[in-house]
Design a protein around this nucleic acid. Structure first.
Lengths: 230, 230
DNA sequence: AGTCATTGTCACGAGCCTGTAATATAAGCT
DNA sequence: AGCTTATATTACAGGCTCGTGACAATGACT
């Protein structure tokens, strides 16, 4: 049950504080002050989850994360830690492959809760398959690919996450705020109606394959992915 | 559904502004200008969420929050409200047990969004599948679908809520005002007679499936859902 | 610098919902 | 029956929701 956490932050004060909080919670903790050091620890140990500071001298957190994901050697959860207010950066973090992000200042309670959520998700997904499919659509999370009739379909990052979420929870209606929480993340603040626009973009892409019907509008409530017609 | 929010801020102008915004959104709102007053309100009422100003004369928001958490008597969500100037290394990462932070100045939209996120997290929404059925009718709340003879039936939002409520309380008569409270919500003001119209619309939709008989009129009292004929 | 992809927001319009009033019908009572 | 009250039905106007195209901002890439 006890997971191995790697803290990557250039500020010693923060490393120490977080380390203490996590050790109290019973986690095994390592830390690193830069990306180079972190990579070494990743290779030498079984790290389950990495808390990665966004701003670091040298290789930044985001570069490091994207490198880890691109190489795909390490099956490690990544939570980005950022002091930035800018939500665009947060979204970029998700696109790069972070599992979650948390803003400074954060409470240890929130941190623990997010860590557990990510760890739970990882242990579920890795045991199961990373491939989800419904109808003609197949999504390969590892390769970040969507196949329809064994043909490659190009999706933007947000479209991908949106489709992936809907497809992994079929036959269930989600309100716009729920979709924002689950697809955009609960720290990102955007308009409700933005969901509509992305739903539309998704439908547009799926239309040539006649899969746009899978996405139902439930008036007054939200959207639903379902194979059966309305 | 409607949560009870407590605003704690020493500035009356801010209290009033936030209160107005929240009341428009349908929240129940209380406010306090200091920690002492806030504690009283916490003890006397069921507060779901507290908006707590970071800087206050006397007992500061920080002290108050950490005291609440230390004592652990109150299961209340806390969103700390901080000013931009407060952001320094001392505060960053400080753990007082708040569930979220928001920086002044904030838009009401962002505030609402964060509040909902915290409230949702607290209530730990158990997504138990909510399926009710009676006779040939089956209602799946998660899918937001109504099935009769395993066929999909289209209902408008209000029709859906009305049928769902009646069907979940079979063989019981409800007056129009009771229906208004439970289906429309206790903050909405509409005419009694409106219920009649919606009952009619519901019956119309159910008629092709011969389910309109399930909805009985009880003269002088109200309506009842029942499988047995009158 | 320039181009392209992505994304959040807005504005407009079509169509669906909904509350209400007006009228018709039914039920109860003397 | 005749009167009174309660409910059913219809029509309608205003409001709201959603789909859609346009646009600006941002960042990646050349």
């Amino acid at each position: 049950m006890s997971a191995h956490i790697l803290i990557v932050d250039d500020e010693a004060a923060i490393r120490d504080m977080v380390r203490m909080a996590l050790e109290i919670e019973g986690y095994q903790v390592s830390d690193a002050s830069n990306a180079h050091q972190a990579l070494k620890l990743l290779e030498q140990n079984d790290i389950d989850l990495m808390l990665l500071d966004w701003m670091m001298p040298g290789v930044s957190g985001i570069d490091f994360a994207s490198r880890i994901r691109r190489e795909g050697n390490h099956q490690v959860g990544i939570i980005m830690v950022t002091a930035k207010d800018d939500e665009n950066d947060l979204i970029r973090g998700l696109d790069v492959g972070a599992d979650d992000y948390i803003r400074k200042p954060f409470s240890t309670k929130e941190l623990i809760s997010r860590m557990n959520a990510v760890l739970r998700r990882l242990s579920n997904d890795s045991s199961a398959n990373d491939v989800v499919s419904a109808g003609k659509i197949t999504i390969d999370t590892n390769q970040h690919r969507v196949l329809i009739d064994s043909k490659n379909v190009d999706l933007s990052p947000t479209e991908f996450r949106l489709l992936h979420f809907l497809l992994s929870h079929p036959d269930r209606v989600f309100g716009r705020d729920q979709l924002l929480d689950n697809v955009w993340g609960d720290q990102v603040y955007v308009e409700d109606r933005t969901v509509d626009v992305h739903i539309r973009r998704l439908r547009k892409v799926l239309k040539p394959y006649e899969c746009d019907e899978y996405i139902n509008t439930v008036r007054g409530v939200g959207y639903r992915f379902s194979l059966q017609p309305t």
